[in-house]
């Protein structure tokens, strides 16, 4: 209940920041347009763009509420409700964004496996929200957090997909399922990707929750 109210109001808060929202929505578009002539490259870039946009937005939303959250805790909310609500809102918004871009690619490109393309875009959004939350938890200042996300996305983009470094990056699953979706490979790419996504999500969401549970912990003062 509390988590849903937090989620609804977080969404409303973001929706009022028109310019920032517009920039977040258009960010993946530039990624897509640069390699529009190549289906595989454009879809992969677009997916990474969605991940970057949603994680950065989550970073800012979580950081912006640092003053409010301790007071919500004092009023009686649990950390899971406060942080979970914000991640829920960002995940929901991210999924809508991803589905919008999927419609664009489905119309603009010749996709062999459109459902798998939808899956990677949605996965990118779903992973991005807790990733942004985790970075916000580790790096409380916005500039540091934004630079860290930039580094993660750059490494993800440039690393050799078969190498270890790429596998340690959060959006490797999107890349792996992307190969299944675009190059029509065997389904083991799909399963590996889903497993990677599940582990990544658990690490990011669990890490975010654990750090905030510690940071927003309240002592049990005895009654006088």
């Amino acid at each position: 209940m509390t988590a849903l109210v937090v989620a609804a109001l977080s969404a409303r808060e973001v929706s009022r920041r028109r310019t920032a929202l517009l920039l977040v929505i258009t960010l993946p578009l530039w990624f897509y347009l640069v390699r529009r002539d190549q289906t595989g490259q454009s879809v992969r870039m677009l997916t990474l763009g969605i991940g970057w946009a949603v994680s950065t937005l989550t970073l800012f939303v979580v950081n912006a509420s640092r003053g409010v959250d301790p007071r919500l805790r004092l009023s009686g909310a649990s950390t899971a409700a406060v942080i979970g609500g914000r991640l829920l809102a960002m995940t929901g918004g991210g999924v809508i964004l991803a589905l919008g871009y999927w419609v664009l690619t489905a119309l603009d490109q010749d996709l062999d496996r459109p459902a798998a393309v939808a899956l990677i875009m949605v996965l990118a959004a779903v992973l991005a929200a807790p990733l942004g939350g985790l970075v916000a938890a580790l790096l409380p200042r916005e500039l540091e957090g934004a630079l860290a996300l930039l580094s993660i996305c750059a490494v993800q983009m440039l690393a050799d997909p078969a190498g270890l470094v790429a596998k340690l990056m959060p959006f490797w699953s999107a890349r792996e399922i992307g190969t299944y979706a675009i190059d029509a490979t065997a389904p083991d790419y799909l399963w590996r990707g889903l497993a990677h996504a599940a582990v990544t999500w658990l690490i990011c969401a669990g890490g975010t929750w654990a750090i905030f549970a510690w940071r927003l912990r309240l002592p049990r003062y005895p009654e006088p």
Partner: peptide
């Protein structure tokens, strides 16, 4: 970016 009423809702929900 929230209005006063929305703050009441948010803090009320926490309690």
């Amino acid at each position: 970016w929230l209005t006063a009423d929305e703050h009441f809702t948010l803090f009320g929900a926490a309690a």
